[in-house]
């Protein structure tokens, strides 16, 4: 069985924001909602600067799903974490639970009223009929049902951002690390896909040299 995952190779990301733009364009994401964003660590420090593309990682044991008071989250048989916007009450619990800050809330009215949660769908839409108008309006395009991978990863010019079946991604990344001989740490991988009984909660950014 396939297990869909994201991998971001910090050694390759050049902070071009192509993934962010691809996502915005593909799903017609409104202003103020960023399903994907690029985070730069050690900005301006020569040799230590690293950029990472962050979005919902579709965790193995998704904390958002665990804390949702209305149980609007579900997981597809390929491990993609999706939610039903018709049930979401916009409480924001998922935002506090998510280690990646993935859930986004559009401003739904005056006085900062929160709308229904929006997040990366791994380009797999939502519970509405695949490719229907309702699905596109609520969740964006369903590329997965078209046999395509998420637009962000397919658009990535340096292939820093990889998406797809976990086994295939592991093979690609292993070969990469073997050839270049460094950069084996994957940011956020242990947090998202580590077993629940392991204490791997800290992102692997410690491997990045810090300013002394």
């Amino acid at each position: 069985m396939a297990r869909m995952k994201f991998i971001c190779d910090a050694e390759r990301c050049i902070e071009c924001n192509g993934c962010v733009t691809a996502c915005k364009n593909e799903h017609d994401v409104p202003w103020g909602v960023n399903r994907r964003r690029v985070v730069t660590l050690n900005d301006g420090i020569v040799g230590a600067e690293r950029s990472i593309s962050v979005a919902c990682m579709h965790c193995s044991d998704a904390p958002c799903q665990a804390v949702c008071p209305v149980n609007c989250f579900y997981k597809t048989e390929d491990g993609v974490v999706l939610h039903d916007k018709d049930l979401c009450i916009g409480c924001g619990y998922c935002f506090y639970a998510c280690p990646f800050g993935a859930p986004q809330f559009p401003q739904a009215g005056a006085f900062g009223l929160r709308g229904k949660m929006d997040k990366c769908t791994f380009c797999a839409g939502g519970p509405e009929k695949d490719g229907s108008k309702a699905e596109i309006e609520k969740y964006g395009r369903n590329r997965l049902s078209e046999g395509k991978l998420p637009a962000c990863a397919e658009m990535c010019s340096t292939k820093a951002l990889l998406a797809g079946d976990g086994d295939v991604l592991s093979d690609i990344y292993r070969e990469r690390v073997m050839r270049r001989g460094r950069g084996g740490d994957l940011w956020g991988h242990a947090t998202a896909y580590g077993r629940p009984d392991t204490k791997a909660t800290a992102p692997a950014v410690q491997s990045i040299p810090q300013k002394s």
Partner: peptide, 18 residues
């Protein structure tokens, strides 16, 4: 720690991509 309980989702059933 709380973990998501499988099968507790109240979401509408999603159709398969194939």
């Amino acid at each position: 720690t709380i973990t998501a309980k499988p099968g507790t989702s109240a979401a509408k059933p999603d159709d398969l991509p194939y």
